[in-house]
């Protein structure tokens, strides 16, 4: 109710009306006749973007847990490599990483006959394993840093209580330490996941046809510039909104005392 009332203040009604006029003007004067022809491809692209996002976020997060743990409590021979990995990933552009992995590894693999004869070779000749690898590594690098802080921020008393109950190290980690660390990291993770969504169009540069690549193709085929890009921006806004909603629900599962 309060949200609705906030929307109905006079200046907002005028702004919403202006926006509606703008939308109608866009719908009437801009060219949208290409949509039916490209709709199946666009849906496939949307599906691929979402799928790429989910896989790389899940895999990247699974990698981030040991990376964060190694930096928070690991001995030096684990913490130094983990920290350098995070620094290198965070210090270089993702586009460069994607190209290094795709063109670099892609030109290296064919030189080894045992790779060319292996079962994996048909997959390694396609672009998507490299895209998933690069995006996963990037997410793991950023989140490793986040998880380091989260692991360190769990109150000591909680871990001591777990020990007092006689929990084994693994049980303590699984039941007490990890859930609390994830809970403190959730707001940051939500923001980082939206950043990961914004990173997915980069894989279009290595010939993966996701949402952004479809828009580029429309532009190249029909020379229509603005319409596909506007629609694309709208789609990204919608996905980002859904992600923000999911993370807010996740955060609300545990009540916070302030």
């Amino acid at each position: 109710m309060t949200a609705l009332r906030a929307l109905l203040r006079p200046h907002r009604i005028v702004m919403i009306a202006l926006f509606a006029v703008l939308v109608v003007w866009c719908a009437v004067t801009l060219r949208w006749d290409w949509i039916p022809r490209y709709a199946p491809l666009a849906l496939e692209g949307l599906w691929r973007t979402v799928w790429l996002l989910v896989i790389t976020v899940v895999l990247g997060f699974l990698l981030a847990i040991p990376l964060g743990l190694a930096q928070a409590i690991g001995p030096w021979y684990l913490s130094i490599p983990a920290r350098s990995f995070c620094t290198v990933i965070r210090g270089t552009p993702l586009l460069l990483q994607i190209w290094l992995i795709y063109y670099g590894l892609g030109s290296l693999f064919p030189e080894y006959p045992w790779i060319r004869e292996s079962e994996l070779w048909p997959y390694l000749r396609q672009a998507w394993p490299y895209a998933i690898f690069a995006l996963t590594m990037s997410y793991a690098g950023y989140e490793g840093e986040v998880m380091r802080g989260a692991f360190a921020s769990v109150p000591r008393g909680q871990l001591e209580a777990a020990e007092a109950f006689g929990m084994s190290r693994f049980t303590k980690f699984r039941r007490i330490w990890l859930p609390q660390a994830i809970q403190t990291a959730l707001p940051t993770l939500g923001g980082e996941t939206i950043l990961q969504l914004k990173a997915t169009p980069l894989v279009a540069t290595i010939a993966i046809v996701e949402m952004y690549a479809v828009a580029s193709r429309v532009r190249q085929d029909t020379f229509i510039v603005y319409e596909p890009l506007l629609l694309l921006a709208l789609f990204y806004l919608a996905i980002a909104g859904v992600l923000a909603l999911i993370f807010r629900k996740l955060e609300e599962r545990v009540p916070v005392r302030r």
Binding site: K198, Y212, L229, L232, A233
Partner: peptide, 18 residues
């Protein structure tokens, strides 16, 4: 809100053409 939710790559193209 819009600039922070839309990928930089898309914004760059739109702003470049505009």
């Amino acid at each position: 809100t819009v600039v922070r939710a839309v990928p930089e790559l898309v914004l760059i193209l739109i702003l470049y053409y505009v």
